[in-house]
Each structure stands twice: as C-alpha cells, then as structure tokens.
Computed example of a mutant assay.
Amino acid sequence: MAIHFSKMFSATKRASSGDWSDEELQATVASYAEMMQFDAEGTPYVKAHYYRDLSTRFGRVEGAFERRMQNISYLLESQGLERLRGLKPQRNVGANVQPRLKGFLDGVFGELSTPLRFAEELVDTAGVIEGVKKQVTVNAYERDSTAKRRCIKRWGCTCAACGFDFHKVYGDLGKGFIHVHHLKPIHTLGGSYLLDPENDLRPVCPNCHSMLHRKTEVLSIEDLRNILARERQN
C-alpha cells in the first residue's frame, strides 16, 4: 500500500507576502515523494492532480507547484539521485527557498547535503599525512532506496560474499539492515545506462563492501568469496 505523504502535513494558507512557507514546501516535497513511490510501484497517477490539490490548499497557481517540483528534480539530480520522469530540473530555486527545500528533502530522501563520490574514484594518494581519516562512500545507485528495496526483495539481507546476517546476530536491531553493491564498476557505464536492481545489485555487509572497493580495481564478489575461503583454511 502506498504511503500518502501529502496527507502528512496539514493544509495552511500561503503568506500574503508571496513567500513560500515551510508548509507549502513540505507539502510539495511530500507530493513529489508520493509520485516517486507510485512510479516505482508502477501505479498510475496524474501530476496535474497534485498541482491542483496543492493550489487549492495554499492559494497559489498550479504552475508554481510544477516549477517548484522541477526545482526538486534539480536538487536530486545535482546529488546524483533519481528524480521523477517528466519533471525536468530547473535551477532557479531561490536563495531563501533552497536551504529549506533541501532540508525537507533530506528528511524524505536522506543526506542530500553529503557530496557523492563513486567508491571507485577513492584511490590512495602518495604523500597523505598518516592518520588522516579515509572516507568510503557508495554511488547513487547504491544509495537509492527504491533500487535497494528491489535488490533486497530479490536477494534478501544476507551478505552475498560472507553470508553474514545482521538479523540473526543482532535480532530486531539488525532486521533489514544491509548494504548493496553494484556489480558493474560505475566508470564502465555510459550516461544512458539503465539500472536493473535485481541483476545489477547484490546485498553485502559493510565489511565486505569495503573490501570489494579496497583496491583501485573493484573485486568481484566471487573473488572476495575465494579470498575468504582461502583465509579460513589457513
């Protein structure tokens, strides 16, 4: 059953000054998120109905909400995240609106303020000061919640490399927790590449995920399994 994000926020009237209120921005983000969920599930919806509903609730023209959703597309795409088809990114967010809109998006899509870098790009550099913390991040496909859910639905939450199951070890605290790993190195993919979560992603625990990306050339899960088997025999 789809979560009706747009019903999470109460209807309020727009400020007479014409500035966008927090309630308007929250409701717009909620509507955008609901459409993304419908999109992922293959459930039909009509964007114009959302614009009309928001216009009725807040007394602002329908086109304003469409443009604001295009701003959302811009913020998502600029962080390497999936956006709604048919809502092309529009950059003119507004200095007053952008930080607030980004904050509301963080609550729904998570960590938009964290710059994305592909794990394959994080290579060792000569002359680095000893003790400096090395950050390992994952790519946008691995961060995308829709793709992750589809991967887990197909393969479960057991690590494909070592077999670790957080639920079995940590009980309810670990239920449903796992990373997902992209089988095809990102740098080998073209810009028009279409992700197939069931076939392109695999669940892996954080330790194995780090080991897969430990070297400049990404290890295959099979290679990592062989390393684990060899080390267990020693």
Rank of each mutant, 00 (worst) to 15 (best):
A33F: 04
E222M: 06
M211V: 12
L101S: 01
R202P: 02
G59N: 09
G18K: 05
T114E: 15
I227L: 05
C157K: 08
P89D: 02
Y141M: 07
I221G: 13
I186N: 12
E23M: 07
P197Y: 01
H209L: 01
R225H: 04
L25D: 00
P44I: 06
K47V: 10
E34P: 02
W20P: 04
W20S: 06
S78W: 11
I178Q: 07
Y74D: 01
H181W: 06
A15R: 13
G127I: 03
V46Y: 02
P89W: 08
E111S: 14
E23P: 02
N96K: 15
D223M: 11
K175R: 15
E41H: 04
K148R: 11
N226C: 09
N234I: 10
R117H: 14
A2T: 15
R85A: 15
H187N: 11
E62H: 05
T56Q: 12
Y51F: 14
T43A: 11
S220F: 04
D196G: 06
V204E: 02
V61A: 15
I178P: 05
V29T: 00
W155S: 01
E23R: 05
N92C: 10
S55V: 03
S31M: 12
L75P: 00
D196F: 10
S6N: 06
E24C: 08
Y141L: 08
A161N: 09
A40R: 01
T188E: 13
E120T: 11
S113R: 14
F65S: 04
K175F: 09
L212H: 04
G18T: 04
T56N: 13
N226F: 09
A95L: 05
T137Y: 09
G156S: 02
T158R: 09
L183C: 15
I178K: 05
T56S: 13
S113A: 14
T158P: 00
D19Y: 03
T137R: 09
G127A: 04
N234S: 13
E111H: 12
C157N: 08
V132Y: 08
K175L: 12
N96W: 08
D19W: 01
R67Q: 07
V218Y: 07
D39L: 06
M1Y: 03
L76N: 00
Q135P: 07
E121L: 10
E121V: 06
V132I: 12
M36T: 01
G176F: 05
P89Y: 07
E121G: 07
G103F: 11
L228A: 10
G190S: 08
D172Q: 13
